[in-house]
Design a protein around this nucleic acid. Structure first.
Length: 522
RNA sequence: GCCGCGUUCGUCUAGUCGGCCUAGGACGUAAGAUUUUCAUUCUUAAAAUCGCGGGUUCGAAUCCCGCACGCGGUACCA
């Protein structure tokens, strides 16, 4: 039997990073097992449809290198892959359940149910609304209350049919058996058992003619021959309903295996990582930048912040899973080989921005000089400067190790392309001591007289001049750096001088002498 | 309220049949080394009495029970 898994998001907005991780785990499992990965869009709630969301999901997963074998965007033998396109299909399954006594029609108005729940909620302060076998419960549409409600069980099938014929809106609810233990075998958590008495008769088919998630999910997973359902922990409480549905349809033999992933938590305090946390705490919760079509609100994305997809994938893979060794840096191929559902942790994981940055730095270092150079050239061009490619390559090679995000490139490397226009006052105060103009003039003299080669200048300046005159190495060299760079940061000073060239270096030093001038201290 | 899941350094976690755990790694933090500066890099250190309390056992982070806390669910949302 070939493994078939699906990632089944709802197009209600941008894909949350937790959803991305779910997709990733599904993908890794499918690849490793030589199985198929399917993208199914669960858009049964038409009121929550958000334009652009489906395209966003596809683009985001594509950016991360999570590929599908079948799905809305590429088709496949089990299509269609969008539930709204499968609408005509679900009704017959709901009716099958009705015919077999596993479901019933219900006519209760949403407002009436809402009122019941409100009432129950108010009474909850007093302790409870109902006591069933010693259990206190708030209002729930279940085996204890359904006979008091308006449905084909309390009204009788004839009356129900009459109402339907008369055009009364109705839903179809699942009829849970009264008192049975339902066990869900979860690949991560083991057996989880719940009693049907405490489970509510979920709506399977809505009055608008669409199925709910619960029905559509089971029907589609069965029809699409899904073998493993890997999804978020928030689905665990409804998993018993799902196994009952397989049983009711007579599909228990081929029921997929379940694995409920732990949640992704916010970095500080407790709770599920939410859309708001991201921009508040300085990291994206979405893979790609998202422009909300309604509010116009923009949420930042990993891609736009300069994160490399490999870094995001690696970080996400390790947030809730562990290879069992000390290895932390893994490519998609390695992850595929090592991935193992039994090594997924049970507890929720807090997102760590520091760790994310570390992964990003590691993967940035793996970029070729060519790739970094081309990023750099773009930024240089944006500042109106035409950079020589060979030169940009040299800069990239030299400066790469101190960069984490591409956006830092210009700020860290700008002095390779343009002379400083101002000098850091703190650096002047610290480094530019009395007599420095004389030393700088000497630097110019050396550059003018000694062959323009690293070793020659090193000897003439560092050894003969500075050491020979017992000058302070740090002071002189840092002043030179200040003159050439504008501040006291950067790579090896003479390497920089060699790259800038003799004339440019002299110009910069001369300008510093003219601008900063002689100071009187010590 | 009820049901379910979870609980090892600040964070992610290793620990899968109980002894090799005086609890390991990584991020972060601190100190040191290297360097003409900054960053990188390297070394070292601090950091979890394994949520708490009982039990079982020669021996428990690992098994059992209770409690606490956290999270999830409790919609004609997924």
């Amino acid at each position: 039997m070939t493994v078939r898994v699906r990632f089944a998001p709802s197009p209600t907005g941008p894909l949350h990073i937790g959803g991305v991780r779910t997709a990733l785990y599904n993908y890794l499992f499918a690849r490793q097992q030589g199985g198929k990965m399917i993208l199914r869009i669960e858009d049964t709630d038409q009121t929550r449809f958000v334009p652009g969301a489906e395209q966003y999901i596809i683009e985001a997963l594509d950016w991360l290198g999570i590929q599908f074998d079948e799905g809305v965007h590429i088709g496949g033998p089990f299509g269609p892959y969008r539930q709204s396109d499968r609408k005509p299909l679900y009704r017959q399954y709901a009716e099958q359940l009705l015919a077999d006594g596993w479901a019933y029609y219900a006519f209760d108005k949403p407002e009436a149910l809402e009122a019941k729940r409100k009432e129950a909620e108010t009474n909850m302060h007093l302790g409870y609304t109902l006591v069933i076998d010693g259990h206190k419960t708030p209002f729930q549409y279940d085996c204890n209350t359904r006979m008091q409600m308006e449905n084909s069980l309390s009204l009788g099938m004839e009356e129900a049919q009459r109402r339907i014929a008369a055009g009364d809106p109705y839903v179809i609810r699942f009829k849970f058996p009264e008192d049975i233990d339902i066990t869900v075998h979860d690949l991560i958590r083991g057996d989880v058992t719940m009693n049907s008495r405490l489970l509510d008769d979920k709506v399977l088919f809505k009055s608008d003619g669409m199925p709910t998630y619960h029905l559509a999910n089971i029907v589609d997973d069965h029809l699409m021959e899904i073998t493993h359902v890997i999804r978020g922990e928030e689905w665990l409480p409804s998993a018993p309903l799902h196994v009952m549905l397989y049983r009711a349809f007579g599909w228990e033999e081929t029921m997929p295996q379940f694995a409920h992933l732990p949640l992704l938590l916010k970095p500080e305090g407790n709770g599920k990582l939410s859309k708001r946390d991201g921009d508040r705490l300085g990291f994206p919760v979405f893979p790609l930048e998202w422009h909300d079509p309604k509010s116009g609100e923009v949420s930042s994305g990993y891609r736009e912040q300069g994160y490399l997809p490999q870094a995001v994938v690696n970080m996400l893979a390790l947030l809730g899973w562990h290879p069992g060794t000390d290895q932390e840096l893994m490519t998609m191929d390695e992850l595929t080989k090592l991935f193992d559902i039994s090594h997924i942790s049970k507890n929720g994981a807090k997102f760590s921005l520091d760790k994310a940055k570390w992964f990003q730095h590691e993967y940035f270092q793996q970029l070729s000089d060519e790739e970094v150079a081309s990023m750099l050239e773009q930024q240089v061009a944006a500042h109106g400067i035409q950079a020589d490619h060979g030169y940009a390559m040299q800069v990239a090679a030299l400066m790469k190790e101190r960069i984490t995000f591409p956006s830092e490139l210009w700020d860290t490397c700008c002095y390779f392309f343009q002379a400083p226009t101002e000098y850091d006052p703190a650096a002047i105060k610290k480094r530019w001591k009395a007599g420095m103009t004389t030393h700088m003039a000497k630097v110019i003299e050396i550059l003018n007289t000694v062959p323009f080669e690293y070793d020659a200048i090193h000897k003439a300046l560092l050894e003969d001049y500075i050491k020979g005159h017992e000058l302070n190495m740090g002071s002189v060299m840092n002043s030179l750096r200040l003159a050439v760079v504008g501040k006291t940061v950067g790579p090896d000073m003479l390497t920089l001088v060699m790259m800038l060239g003799k004339d440019e270096t002299i110009r910069r030093v001369q300008r510093a002498i003219d601008t900063i001038g002689e100071v009187e201290n010590q």
